[in-house]
């Protein structure tokens, strides 16, 4: 079943054995992400084990997997926060660096604004550093979320902080959005609002990578699914291919993840 789902057939490709040899069909397709033989461990505990995959441009990608499968590690690598990995990672054909960071809008799974910042400081900070940031849009979002522009981050609840981060990230006209558990800390009522913000405000033809445990809530939004488990890519395919099996993403997720899902 797993092999049938590998749309790109990238898993297990050994770069040494086939150095940069891409098929003609593959070379025609534009990829937002190209990952080859990526391995990352924490003090000997391997989290990503020689994984290889490609993600086509302009897709909404669901990054799924049980806790500890390496989703956040992969996202951190793509965002340029982790450097001690082996393998090749390219975004839009370029190695991770200033150019990729300028094009990637990254939302982490933790709150990253300093406590002393007010809402308006966070907006100004993004306005200072990201050329694709729309300040007016961010202020409109803040009003929509009911965030006071002069309220300090330290005085906000965790949910408010997450909304603040989401609104600044989604106020960018980035080519790629990498969102790590954007619905993780919010109540079910707020989920639809946040999902609505994400789905209605990204730049046209942008690629969105959305990491989540809430497969059921989001599966209808995905164009593409990348499932990680036990350090490997278990599924990397378009949503149509998945649906052609007659099962929902959640059912396939449970089936593929197997024991790991039970542990969670």
């Amino acid at each position: 079943m797993e092999n049938n789902l590998y749309e790109n057939g990238a898993e297990g490709v050994n770069e040494a054995a086939a150095p940069e040899t891409v098929s003609q069909e593959e070379s025609k397709q534009e990829f937002a992400f190209k990952v080859r033989n990526l391995t990352k461990d924490y003090d000997g505990h391997i989290v990503l084990n020689n994984i290889s995959f490609d993600i086509p441009k302009g897709k909404i990608v669901g990054l799924l997997g049980p806790n500890g499968c390496g989703k956040t590690t992969l996202i951190k690598i793509l965002a340029g926060l982790i450097h001690d990995y082996s393998g090749m990672v390219k975004i839009d054909g370029r190695a991770i660096g200033i150019h990729t960071k300028a094009r990637v809008a990254y939302l982490p799974d933790c709150t990253y604004f300093p406590d002393r910042f007010r809402t308006i400081d966070c907006i100004n900070y993004f306005n200072d550093f990201f050329a694709d940031f729309d300040k007016v849009k961010a202020i409109e979002f803040a009003a929509r979320f009911g965030l006071d522009l002069n309220q300090r981050v330290r005085a906000m609840s965790k949910g408010m902080q997450e909304k603040l981060q989401l609104l600044v990230v989604m106020s960018r006209a980035a080519d790629i959005y990498i969102l790590d558990e954007p619905l993780g800390g919010v109540d079910p009522a707020a989920r639809s609002v946040i999902l609505d913000i994400i789905m209605n405000n990204y730049k046209e033809n942008a690629t969105i990578v959305l990491s989540t445990h809430l497969v059921n809530d989001l599966e209808h939004s995905f164009d593409h699914v990348l499932m990680l488990g036990k350090g490997s890519v278990l599924v990397n395919t378009g949503i149509d291919t998945l649906r052609s099996t007659g099962k929902s993403v959640e059912e396939i997720f449970k089936e593929v993840i197997g024991d790991a899902w039970e542990v969670d």
Binding site: A79, G80, L81, I98, H99, K101, A102, V104, Y106, P108, C110, T111, Y112, F113, P114, Y125, F129, F130
Partner: peptide
């Protein structure tokens, strides 16, 4: 805090050298 802890997620993702 600003480079390697939570705020580092913001600082290190900035498009600066």
């Amino acid at each position: 805090r600003n480079m390697f802890e939570k705020e580092g997620h913001l600082t290190l993702s900035l498009p600066v050298r």
